[in-house]
Simulated assay, not measured.
Amino acid sequence: MNFRALLWQIVVVAIVVGIAAWLWSNTVHNLSVRRISTGFAFLGREAGMPIIDTWLPYSPRDTYLWAFVVGVVNTLRVAVIGVVLATILGTLVGISRLSSNWLLSRLSLVYVEVLRDIPLLLQLLFWYVLMQGLPPARGAWKPINGVFLSNRGLIVPSLPLDGGQAWVIGTALLGLVAFYFLRCDLLARQVRDGHPRRIWPYGILFVIAAPALLSWWLGVAWTPTMPVLRGFNFAGGWTFAPEYFALLIALVTYTSAFIAEIVRSGIQAVPKGQWDAAVALGLRRGFVLRQIVLPQALRVIIPPMTSQYLNLTKNSSLAVAIGYQDIVSVANTTLNQTGQAIESIALIMAVFLTISLGISLFMNWYNAHIALVER
């Protein structure tokens, strides 16, 4: 029986390899007949395409390779920030769905049902048209001091990020990581010996005191740059273009509706006896939700939440519909200019595959980290 199973596996693998070899040979033959060059040598040529909204320095004289890097960063700008905001908003809406307040729970229900039933592309176009309908720069809305909202996008004050600031921020991030692992170790010790240990002094030391001391030693200035209206546009500050802002809002609101249902079902999966026991001990409902129910619900929430993170990342490719230049838009422009269709599409696939695998690996690690350990 084992020999037969092994034989069938060899046959299946041989068939797959044969089909792949035939497709490759056929593709190379057709490309040579049409005198279409192959390879990635075009990445070293001058791109000649403008990319307006980017965090990296770029000019049309840069290479196609650097244009692809800029496109990848633009995609990550949407994916990373979108995942964080969608998680926060979806969690709040999901908890509100279970609220005893009738109005709050019904509003959350309407939010979830409406946004889940409208195609994402329509929502994206709606937000983009809405952004285009905002007043011009001279008549921009100013909800708070230094923040402007107009058809130029969202303009907010910016902080200088030179060498000194980067070192301080890096120190704070490293301190946050060190505090996380130290907290896990102290909690494990408390479980073993039953002696409580104070954790907050280490948080103040690693996350606040160490970066503040480094900032003072380096003489880093943290004076924000306020945006100022000059002519028909703003100077200074950070500008979130209308295309980026519309894409981010659409992805966050759409994905948060699905995350809300995941959070709601995860909380309801925790036995009601957990609530009853905690309330009988006199614990507040907010404390019970944070410290007892949600940690148990995470084991149900994390797997489907991973799928939503992947969906948000892949749905960011709809940016091409409103002109936001992510990796898909840059690759499409490259394809039209060079004719390297296979290579451009292969780069898109490689980028999204890498991002998706990275998200999956991280979420699988986290899911295994919080899993119940059988004794």
Results as ranks from 00 to 15, higher is better:
residue 24 W to D: 12
residue 176 L to R: 04
residue 125 L to M: 11
residue 180 Y to T: 10
residue 177 V to I: 15
residue 82 G to R: 01
residue 13 V to K: 02
residue 303 P to W: 08
residue 75 T to V: 01
residue 12 V to W: 08
residue 255 T to R: 07
residue 221 A to V: 02
residue 110 V to H: 10
residue 263 V to R: 09
residue 302 I to F: 08
residue 118 I to S: 04
residue 124 L to G: 02
residue 266 G to R: 14
residue 57 P to K: 13
residue 151 N to H: 14
residue 184 C to K: 14
residue 366 Y to G: 05
residue 125 L to T: 09
residue 143 P to I: 04
residue 164 G to R: 04
residue 27 T to A: 09
residue 191 V to Y: 04
residue 139 G to H: 07
residue 184 C to M: 12
residue 220 V to G: 11
residue 374 E to Q: 13
residue 66 W to A: 00
residue 114 V to P: 10
residue 128 Y to R: 09
residue 320 V to K: 10
residue 95 I to K: 04
residue 235 A to H: 06
residue 179 F to I: 02
residue 11 V to P: 00
residue 187 L to K: 13
residue 355 I to Y: 00
residue 196 P to E: 07
residue 173 L to W: 10
residue 111 Y to L: 02
residue 369 H to L: 15
residue 241 A to E: 12
residue 113 E to W: 03
residue 144 I to Q: 00
residue 236 G to W: 13
residue 104 L to C: 04
residue 312 L to C: 11
residue 164 G to A: 06
residue 254 Y to L: 08
residue 275 W to M: 13
residue 80 V to F: 12
residue 156 V to K: 02
residue 134 L to I: 00
residue 94 G to T: 07
residue 273 G to I: 03
residue 359 I to N: 04
residue 63 T to W: 05
residue 374 E to P: 00
residue 3 F to H: 15
residue 239 T to P: 02
residue 92 L to G: 11
residue 321 A to L: 08
residue 55 W to D: 06
residue 267 I to S: 10
residue 111 Y to Q: 08
residue 35 R to S: 05
residue 47 A to N: 02
residue 159 L to I: 05
residue 350 A to D: 10
residue 287 F to P: 03
residue 130 L to A: 15
residue 132 Q to D: 09
residue 236 G to A: 13
residue 191 V to N: 10
residue 288 V to D: 04
residue 306 T to F: 10
residue 251 L to A: 10
residue 352 F to T: 06
residue 323 G to F: 13
residue 178 A to P: 07
residue 232 F to M: 12
residue 264 R to D: 15
residue 119 P to G: 07
residue 138 R to E: 11
residue 62 D to I: 08
residue 174 L to Y: 01
residue 66 W to I: 03
residue 215 S to E: 07
residue 56 L to S: 00
residue 348 I to Q: 04
residue 226 M to C: 00
residue 339 G to W: 06
residue 360 S to W: 03
residue 93 V to H: 06
residue 178 A to M: 12
residue 354 T to D: 00
residue 353 L to F: 11
residue 83 V to G: 13
residue 150 S to Y: 10
residue 240 F to L: 11
residue 2 N to P: 11
residue 277 A to H: 11
residue 355 I to K: 02
residue 279 V to H: 14
residue 364 N to E: 14
residue 10 I to A: 14
residue 79 A to Y: 03
residue 307 S to I: 14
residue 209 A to Y: 09
residue 22 W to H: 11
residue 336 N to L: 14
residue 265 S to R: 05
residue 120 L to Q: 08
residue 268 Q to R: 14
residue 286 G to E: 15
residue 35 R to P: 04
residue 88 I to F: 11
residue 333 T to Y: 01
residue 196 P to M: 11
residue 145 N to D: 14
residue 86 A to H: 11
residue 219 G to T: 03
residue 291 Q to K: 14
residue 191 V to D: 09
residue 55 W to L: 15
residue 316 S to R: 03
residue 172 A to Y: 09
residue 226 M to Q: 09
residue 230 R to E: 15
residue 280 A to T: 13
residue 298 L to P: 00
residue 9 Q to H: 10
residue 298 L to Y: 09
residue 105 S to A: 12
residue 348 I to M: 08
residue 267 I to K: 08
residue 155 I to V: 12
residue 358 G to E: 01
residue 251 L to T: 07
residue 358 G to P: 01
residue 105 S to T: 05
residue 278 A to K: 04
residue 291 Q to C: 12
residue 273 G to V: 07
residue 136 P to T: 08
residue 120 L to R: 04
residue 111 Y to T: 06
residue 127 W to G: 02
residue 345 I to L: 07
residue 360 S to Q: 15
residue 244 Y to A: 12
residue 346 A to T: 06
residue 3 F to L: 14
residue 371 A to D: 08
